[in-house]
């Protein structure tokens, strides 16, 4: 190790543990002196660097963090509460809306059906026997156990994508349309509707929902009761 490298190494790190440096120091009293001088300088610099630390710094550091974490936990609690509240709110609102929206108003649907169909079913003048009606109703597992009176029309038709039985029969004052629809949880079996000069009421009949549509003022209630009494579903 030459003189320059030796000096450079020790200048960079007076406490250097390099064997060659240590050997060089051992061999040469001058280098020993140089090493001692440098170490002395480091010692002085170390002492000189010891700026007095403010007495209250420790307390400030710990206090500030305590306040910070206190504030943070308060904010966190508030945020958690707010989040819980909004989740509860959204769940509540969407559940209510889901309930309202999800149940199909079959009474409305029945009026729309009758209206769209126009005169085709309503003006049919067939004389459908009870056997014929029951033959169709059998698909849904039901039968009428008593005569229904005059039945003008009986047909399987599409009721909002559900196969259902469509009847037109004589009511107390005028014709009424009757739909027998297989039971579905998505149907609101207690719905009522008024629209386009018709009124409509739905009811639950064991394995099916029955909707009766008549002109406004017709005795829908009476037809409903009659049907309910006469229809029977095999278990």
């Amino acid at each position: 190790m030459d003189e320059l490298e030796f000096r450079r190494t020790l200048y960079a790190d007076p406490n250097c543990n390099d064997e060659r440096v240590l050997a060089a120091i051992n061999d040469d009293p001058k280098k020993q002196e140089f090493h001692k001088e440098l170490k002395q300088l480091d010692k002085s610099m170390q002492l000189a660097s010891q700026v007095k630390v403010p007495d209250d710094l420790v307390h400030k550091l710990i206090l500030r963090q305590t306040m910070q974490s206190h504030r943070a936990s308060k904010v966190r609690n508030r945020i958690q509460l707010a989040m819980a509240a909004s989740v509860a709110f959204v769940v509540g609102v969407s559940f209510t809306m889901w309930q309202q929206h999800n149940l199909l108003n079959i009474a409305d649907q029945a009026i729309a059906h009758v209206y769209q169909e126009g005169s085709y079913a309503l003006e049919a003048q067939n004389n459908v026997s009870l056997q014929q009606v029951n033959a169709k109703l059998a698909q849904f597992g039901g039968e009428f156990t008593e005569e229904l009176g005059q039945v003008y029309y009986a047909s399987i038709c599409d009721f909002d994508n559900v196969r259902s039985l469509h009847l037109v029969m004589q009511g107390e004052n005028g014709k009424v349309s009757v739909f027998v629809i297989p039971h579905d949880d998505a149907h609101n079996a207690k719905s009522e509707a008024y629209a386009r000069g018709y009124q409509s009421q739905a009811m639950d009949a064991q394995r099916a929902s029955i909707v009766v549509v008549g002109e406004e003022g017709a005795n829908i209630q009476g037809v409903k009761e009659q049907l309910k009494r006469k229809i029977h579903f095999s278990a």
């Binding site: 450079r8 190494t9 200048y11 960079a12 790190d13 007076p14 440098l38 300088l41 610099m45």
Partner: peptide, 12 residues
């Protein structure tokens, strides 16, 4: 190491 060397050199 170079910077340390120069730093001490300048101090001295």
């Amino acid at each position: 190491m170079t910077r340390l060397f120069r730093a001490r050199n300048q101090v001295k």
